[in-house]
């Protein structure tokens, strides 16, 4: 039996970035919960004005995008580069839909005259969701580059490092949203 732990998937530098990002998001989440202590009514009332349906749909889209990334790595490990790239494109499609839905949600808020200065809840809402929004866009760009290179046959079963690195970043984006959805949209 092998007692040595397996190496962390992907590049160590990416994991350091992931830890830094998680730290920042974690501080934001805790700050939200602490500031809410003295503004419970304001937070609860404002929370009811945001769209839970789009929040839930976006959660499912990110979970599905992560699922496709895992499937892409599986396919690449079997030397199925084309199939792997198709999974990545499916993941990119889910992530792009997330961006589209979130953009519509932001547009709705802005047209209703709601912005980052409306109140403390909305300050956190925009700060957290916009910060995450840009991370999704960056994740999509990384996945797109990896998908093109995979399609062109640059990676194979022995070269999964780049895809695992991209995948790790994408899963971090997913993980952050998993906490953000109940915190901002649901828990009262």
């Amino acid at each position: 039996m092998n007692k040595h732990p397996k190496p962390i998937p992907g590049d160590l530098a990416m994991w350091i970035i992931i830890f830094a990002e998680l730290l920042v998001f974690g501080i934001f989440f805790i700050a939200y919960a602490i500031v809410r202590i003295n503004n419970v009514e304001l937070f609860n009332d404002s929370q009811l004005t945001i769209n839970r349906e789009t929040g839930a749909l976006n959660t499912i889209l990110l979970i599905t995008a992560s699922y496709f990334v895992v499937m892409a790595i599986h396919a690449l490990k079997k030397n199925l580069s084309k199939k792997s790239s198709h999974y990545l494109y499916a993941s990119i499609a889910c992530g792009s839909l997330f961006i589209l839905i979130k953009s519509i949600e932001f547009q709705d808020k802005f047209s209703a005259g709601i912005d980052i200065g409306t109140n403390t809840f909305y300050m956190f809402y925009f700060l957290l969701t916009l910060f995450h929004y840009f991370h999704v866009i960056l994740g999509l760009m990384i996945l797109f580059v990896v998908a093109i290179k995979t399609q062109k046959g640059h990676y194979n079963a022995e070269q999964t490092h780049a895809m695992e690195t991209a995948g790790s970043y994408w899963h971090m984006v997913d993980l952050v949203w998993i906490i953000m959805f109940p915190l901002i949209y649901v828990v009262r």
């Binding site: 732990p5 397996k6 190496p7 962390i8 992560s66 990334v69 895992v70 997913d174 993980l175 998993i178």
Partner: peptide, 16 residues
């Protein structure tokens, strides 16, 4: 959900 993502999607099962 976070545990599932960390362990199974990120693949941290079995790492140090």
């Amino acid at each position: 959900k976070g545990v599932m993502i960390i362990r199974d999607y990120m693949g941290l099962k079995g790492v140090s």
